[in-house]
Lab assay of single mutants.
Amino acid sequence: EETVVIALYDYQTNDPQELALRRNEEYCLLDSSEIHWWRVQDRNGHEGYVPSSYLVEKS
């Protein structure tokens, strides 16, 4: 079962390993094994790492 997370803030990045976030957008959580950086996928299928503190699990 996939976990959906919501971005609390915008996040901009130039790092190809990371993914930009848009506030209030939903993302699919792929990997939360790292404490500070979670791997997520956006609705267009793009994947990357984002700061975990910018996300909240959708209830």
Rank of each mutant, 00 (worst) to 15 (best):
S53V: 06
E25K: 06
L21H: 03
D42K: 03
H46C: 11
L19M: 15
L8V: 08
N24I: 01
L55Q: 02
I35L: 11
D10S: 06
H46L: 11
A20M: 10
H46P: 03
A7D: 00
D31L: 02
L30I: 13
L30N: 05
W37R: 15
D15F: 11
Y11P: 00
Q12S: 13
E18L: 06
I35N: 14
Y27C: 02
E25D: 15
S33A: 11
N24T: 10
Y27I: 00
V4E: 06
H46R: 12
A20W: 15
N44L: 11
P51D: 04
G45A: 05
P51Q: 03
L19T: 04
Y9D: 13
R39F: 10
E26V: 06
Y49P: 03
V56D: 05
Y49A: 12
H46E: 13
T13W: 02
Q41E: 09
Y9T: 12
S33Y: 03
Y54D: 02
C28V: 13
W38Y: 08
R39A: 04
N14A: 10
N14Y: 09
C28A: 15
T13N: 05
S33L: 05
E26Q: 07
V50E: 00
E18N: 11
A20Q: 14
K58Q: 09
A20V: 13
A20S: 13
R22G: 07
E1Q: 05
Y9H: 08
Y54K: 06
E26D: 05
E1D: 08
S33V: 05
L55A: 00
L29S: 02
D15A: 15
R23V: 09
H46I: 10
H36C: 05
Q41L: 08
Y54W: 07
Y27L: 04
N14K: 12
N44E: 15
P16E: 12
L19V: 11
L30A: 05
T13V: 11
E47C: 11
A20N: 14
V56P: 02
W37N: 10
K58T: 05
V4F: 14
L30E: 04
D15T: 14
L8H: 06
E57Q: 09
G48F: 03
Y54H: 12
R43I: 06
K58H: 08
L30Y: 02
R39L: 14
P51A: 01
N14T: 15
S52N: 07
R43F: 06
H36A: 12
N44Q: 14
E25S: 08
S53Y: 05
D31Y: 02
Y11E: 00
E47K: 09
R43A: 15
Q12W: 08
D10V: 00
E34H: 13
L21M: 06
N24S: 12
R43D: 15
V4C: 08
Y27R: 01
G48V: 02
Q41T: 11
G45T: 04
L21G: 00
D15Q: 15
D31Q: 05
L8D: 03
I35T: 14
S59D: 13
L30K: 14
R39Y: 10
D42H: 04
T13L: 04
R23I: 13
D10E: 05
D31R: 03
V50I: 02
L55K: 00
R39W: 08
D15L: 14
S59K: 14
R22W: 10
V40D: 01
E34R: 15
L29T: 02
C28I: 15
E26G: 03
S53N: 11
A20T: 14
S32A: 11
E25T: 10
L29K: 05
V50A: 14
Y27P: 00
D31S: 09
Y27E: 01
T3H: 07
V5Y: 11
